[in-house]
Amino acid sequence: MLARIKQFLGIGAKPKEVPKEEVEKVAEEKAKPRIGYVHLSGCTGDIMSLSENYDILAELLTNMVDIVYGQTLADVWEMPEMDLVLVEGSVCLQDEHSVKELKEAREKAGLVVAFGSCAATGCFTRYSRGGQQARPDHESFVPIADLVKVDCAIPGCPPSPEIIAKTVVAVINGDMDYLQPMIDLAGYTEACGCDLQYKVVNQALCIGCGTCAMACQTRALTMTDGRPELTSARCVKCGICYVQCPRSWWPADRIKQDLGL
């Protein structure tokens, strides 16, 4: 996995803090990475969030990458070979087109990224039980990792513009250390607010900091007696509370680097 990402980035060892001019130079010299966007069952929030990065996006889209596939993004029908594909949305098992597109994306892309919580964890599509117009048979929506191998995940409902920008910068700089948690998160496909109880409180790890309740976008979490309390009817199973909890995983070195400590 690591080797494949490195190959994609065209690096052997990880370079340190590359200055901007140099990045641009390398980007000019190297063939531009070919990126695809596959939109399955999601609300388009993820790509909206991406497009909020106006300041870096122009440079990115014009000079650093080639968007070679994607509804509304590229005028192509046949899926080409891609270095990286971002997949938004979960996959509906009854929808043969979605299943086929996802499988094809896996075959044609070097790296598959589950972009946003629907692709990564299923998110609110986990609640689907079918029986709705126009396709009452569309019942089962699962994270894409249930069907294909996923290389890295960027959860969020939607992922913040900032995490997208940081990820892009890390990819361009070949900063593997920054991407490692996202590689690890590819395996986190069954998410729920109750993870806080199972994986933090039950494991004698919770310290009542309130980060989970701060991070929850649906206000499904409150803090009661210093512990998170879940209103499950509000939970969309995005997994963000657990992902942001300081007791789930701890990126100490990156934090120190970011703070200059």
Partner: peptide, 11 residues
């Protein structure tokens, strides 16, 4: 600090 370095779902 974790939220600042990895603001996955926090915009």
């Amino acid at each position: 600090r974790k939220m600042q370095s990895y603001p996955f779902g926090v915009r």
